[in-house]
């Protein structure tokens, strides 16, 4: 599905990603874990062309998308749910969702499918349906996260990039979000690249993971094995204290 070779990106003048190579197979959930500033978000932003790619190859189903315009990348099937939700506050929930299908809306004969997809999103997130006419800014944090995910899904992505979906959310809401992530892979077969500060939760839901440290991949492995890795435990998992929703 996605194959990255020797990706180098810069965050201002900082060499933020150094020779990152990674891949995702179809239907996989892969997580990137790492401390603040390790380059996780930079990696996602490079994939969706929010920041320019320095050097390297990014193959999305065989197409090199490095250097491509963001809208073309979306139309090739890659959508990102940005960190901090970034919903359009003054617009209604439904308008936010419709914007997610912006590229498809302009394409010929897509509108009935968009309407069907909207209903599908409402079935996945019934709360959004209840609040469809409400301004997005008035939603709770968890609802906004669901809206941001729903908005990305409206583009019908094959590959979904999720940046810190649990950030600032109450534990029970986090649990709900991760349930949705699993469901997306299970029911729709969406491939998911998940960036998370909450490494334990991410590794529990993911198939594989990569550990980033100062812009370099230092470990790759099956998620359950990374959970056992002492480096990962020491740096990212904290002590054995379980979150309330993990019990």
């Amino acid at each position: 599905m996605l194959k990255i070779k020797n990706l180098n990106s810069y965050y201002g003048k900082v060499h933020a990603l150094k020779n990152v190579s990674l891949h995702l197979d179809r239907g996989e959930i892969v997580t990137l874990i790492g401390a603040n500033g390790a380059g996780k978000t930079t990696l996602l932003n490079s994939l969706s062309a929010i920041i320019p790619v320095g050097t390297g190859e990014i193959l999305l189903e065989g197409n090199n998308i490095a250097g491509m315009a963001a809208d073309r990348i979306v139309s090739l099937g890659l959508s990102q749910v940005p960190e901090g939700r970034q919903v359009f506050n003054p617009l209604t929930v439904e308008e936010n969702l419709e914007l997610g299908a912006y590229l498809r809306y302009r394409a010929h004969g897509q509108r009935p499918a968009i309407a069907a997809d909207l209903e599908h999103i409402y079935r996945t997130f019934p709360r959004l349906k209840e609040r469809r006419k409400q301004a997005a800014g008035t939603l709770s944090g968890g609802e906004q996260q669901m809206l941001a995910i729903g908005r990305a899904l409206m583009a019908r992505p094959k590959l979904l990039l999720l940046d810190e979906p649990s950030m600032g959310l109450a534990p029970l809401v986090v649990q709900e979000i991760f349930r949705v992530v699993e469901k997306l892979r299970g029911e729709e077969g969406t491939t998911i690249l998940l960036v998370e500060q909450n490494a334990r939760a991410a590794l529990k839901v993911a198939d594989r993971g990569y550990v980033l440290e100062t812009g370099k991949v230092i470990l790759e492995g099956i998620a359950s094995e990374l959970l056992e890795n002492k480096d990962v435990q020491r740096a990212y998992l904290g002590h054995d204290k379980k979150e309330i929703w993990e019990r």
Binding site: H23, K216, E220
Partner: peptide, 20 residues
């Protein structure tokens, strides 16, 4: 070709680790 990709990823990660 998938073996090659996986090997490259793991090689780079291994080198980063041993260098450190």
């Amino acid at each position: 070709e998938e073996i090659a990709q996986l090997q490259l990823e793991r090689l780079q990660a291994t080198l980063n680790r041993v260098y450190k």
